[in-house]
Amino acid sequence: MSGSVLYDVPGPRAIARNRIIGVITILVVVAVIAFFIWRLIATGQFSAQKWIGFTYTRIWEQIAMATVRTVAAFAAAAVGALALGFILAIGRLSDHAWVRWPVTVVTEFLRAVPVLVMMFLLYYGLPVMGVEIPSYWAVVIALVAYNGSVLAEVIRAGVESLPRGQSEAGYSIGLRKAGVMQLVLLPQAIRAMMPVIISQLVVTLKDTALGFIITYEELLLLAKQLGAATTIGRPIVQMTMVVAVIYIGMCLLLSLVARMAEKRMSRSPKVQGAARHLDVNPRTHDGGTDTELIAQQRL
């Protein structure tokens, strides 16, 4: 045998059982969706009277402004979280204990504190000490702190999951640790962990909705306000549907942009140049002591 068997091919009985479970699952999901739609129709949620508020231009202007404020908070939080994630990840990978341990403590602390608690402390706690902070910055800072610490662990795990031969090949051609990290390890780790990074950025986008609790005027707060407006028939369900569609659209757009960035990064001259400089034998991927390296430096 060439290797260990990690997965047994299912037999006829197992295949039939899996198909039955799949069919039952689909039927249950369809039944739940059908019941939900039926209740919406039975309670008149699709009647013209319930949707009359969306015929006003002013309503859509408010929705557009709330969407812009949501995107503004997410954009600042995403950039800050990525920057903080790289800083904390590099600190945790440091060879110096006096750098590594404090960064580890800060990362674990930020991961342990819920985002909503951070927002409360920033928006309601700091004024008690004489420091006023706008709701926008309370949302952004809280999202940066939490998601940055999570991304730090994602990036660190991606770097540490790479074969040891990758870094050894970099050192063998004269690169220092900073060069190995920048040219060899981080590009590969980011590509490998890109799905997880995108998933965390989607979480960041959806967590902007927590800002409504500290009165940040984003989509969810607007949905609550317009949904309770008696002048347009209190369309809380309809506003929820509209906001949900907007969030889904933004998440899909974010995933599309991330895939484009991933493809562009894979064609980056820096990454391709590093791949040409370093040729690591596939047999080194076990990380053993008898690693056989082929490191070539272009003169």
Rank of each mutant, 00 (worst) to 15 (best):
Q49E: 14
T57L: 15
L27G: 06
R58Q: 13
T67H: 05
R19K: 02
I37H: 04
G22F: 00
A34C: 10
T57S: 10
R17I: 07
I15R: 11
I59F: 07
A48M: 12
Q62G: 03
V68A: 09
Q49Y: 14
R58L: 09
L40N: 06
A66V: 04
R69Y: 12
I21Q: 05
A16S: 13
W51N: 00
A14L: 05
I41W: 07
I37N: 06
G22C: 00
R19W: 02
G22M: 03
R39C: 05
M65T: 09
A66M: 02
A31R: 12
Q45A: 00
A48F: 11
I59M: 12
W51T: 09
F54A: 06
F35W: 11
I37E: 01
W38N: 10
Q45T: 00
Y56A: 06
V32H: 11
I41N: 07
W51Y: 06
A42S: 08
R69T: 14
T25V: 15
Q62R: 10
S47F: 14
I24T: 03
I63Y: 03
A31W: 07
G44V: 01
Q62T: 10
F46Q: 06
A34V: 15
I15T: 09
V29D: 09
F35H: 12
Y56G: 08
I24N: 03
T43V: 04
R17T: 07
K50H: 12
E61V: 14
R19M: 10
T25P: 06
A34H: 04
I33Y: 06
I21S: 04
E61A: 15
A66F: 10
I33H: 03
W60A: 00
V28H: 05
V29H: 04
T67F: 11
